[in-house]
């Protein structure tokens, strides 16, 4: 995921902005920087959303699958 996408993503519950924590970056084929791993945290409610393998999981927490070991 490109960091600029954070400008349009929001918390699915209260629609407030998300802050990126614990980010790991990787440089893609076209030299652009991608976030590969991290956590997106709602600035308002504090809910934490995983970003794994380059894809943010912004499902409401009750719909999120149990994270595989």
């Amino acid at each position: 995921m490109k960091e600029s996408l954070l400008e349009i993503l929001c918390c699915p519950l209260d629609k407030h902005e998300l802050e990126l924590e614990d980010a790991e970056y990787e440089t893609g084929e076209d030299d652009s920087e991608e976030i590969i791993d991290g956590t997106l945290v709602c600035e308002e409610c504090g809910e934490r959303y995983p970003l794994e393998d380059g894809i943010p999981n912004l499902l409401p927490p009750d719909m999120r699958e149990e994270s595989p070991a």
Binding site: L9, C10, C11, P12, N57, L58, L59, P60
Partner: peptide, 17 residues
């Protein structure tokens, strides 16, 4: 394409974007 896992009834996208 910017891929995002999400629920169509609770969209994780900002208003009017």
């Amino acid at each position: 394409v910017a891929l995002c896992q999400g629920d169509a009834a609770a969209l994780p996208l900002a208003t009017n974007t």
